[in-house]
Simulated scan of single mutants.
Amino acid sequence: MATRLVCRDCHRVLDVEGDEQCPACGSNSLTEDWAGYVVIAHPEESEIAEAMEVTEAGRYALKVR
């Protein structure tokens, strides 16, 4: 069963199995310690995406520890 982890570097929410890398940025720094969730469909039109410095559509955590 996949575990929901978040990349500490780009905050992307991932469904992973075991030790994996973030497909977005390549980081190995994944965590289960996060809060808040936002789905960004059109980053070029989103003020939230701009504030989070997100340029790709996807699922992102708002707070990562």
Rank of each mutant, 00 (worst) to 15 (best):
S29C: 05
I48R: 01
C22W: 01
V54E: 02
L30E: 06
C10P: 08
R4C: 03
E47I: 06
R59V: 05
D9A: 12
V6G: 04
G26I: 14
K63D: 11
I40D: 02
A24M: 10
R59C: 06
G26K: 08
A61W: 10
D33S: 08
A41F: 14
V64Q: 06
S46E: 07
S29L: 13
L30I: 00
S27R: 12
G18R: 09
S46V: 04
V64Y: 04
V54I: 13
E53Q: 12
H42Q: 14
D15T: 12
R8T: 02
E45K: 13
Y60Q: 11
A51Y: 03
Q21N: 12
D9N: 14
K63R: 14
A61C: 10
C22S: 04
D9H: 11
R65L: 01
E44P: 12
H11G: 01
V6D: 05
I40S: 01
L30G: 02
R12A: 15
I48N: 00
T3A: 09
E47T: 12
L30A: 10
R65M: 02
A49S: 06
L62Q: 11
V39S: 09
R4W: 04
L30D: 07
D33E: 13
I40H: 04
V64F: 03
V6T: 10
A41I: 14
I40E: 02
A41T: 15
A24K: 08
V16L: 06
V6P: 00
T55F: 03
A51H: 06
R59Y: 08
T3N: 12
H42S: 10
L14E: 01
R8F: 00
M52T: 03
W34A: 02
S46T: 05
C7L: 03
R59G: 00
A61P: 14
Q21E: 15
R65S: 10
R12H: 14
V54D: 00
K63V: 08
S29H: 11
V38L: 06
C22H: 05
E53T: 02
V64G: 02
E53D: 15
R12K: 15
E17S: 11
N28R: 10
D15I: 09
V16T: 10
Q21F: 12
H42P: 00
T3I: 02
E45I: 00
V13W: 00
Q21G: 06
A24G: 08
L14C: 01
Y37K: 13
H11S: 07
A49C: 06
P23A: 03
T55S: 09
L5W: 03
Q21R: 15
V39T: 14
E45P: 00
A41S: 15
N28C: 04
C25P: 12
A35W: 10
A24F: 09
L5V: 11
E17D: 11
V64H: 05
R12V: 15
P43F: 09
L14I: 01
E44G: 11
A2S: 14
M1P: 01
L5K: 15
D15Q: 13
R4A: 04
I48P: 00
D33L: 05
S27K: 10
G26Q: 07
E32A: 15
E56Q: 15
G26H: 07
C22M: 02
Y60D: 09
S27Y: 06
V64S: 05
T55H: 06
T3R: 12
A61T: 10
A41E: 15
N28V: 07
C25Y: 04
K63I: 05
C7A: 08
E20D: 03
V54A: 00
S27W: 08
D15K: 13
D15Y: 11
R8N: 04
A41Y: 14
P23V: 09
D9S: 14
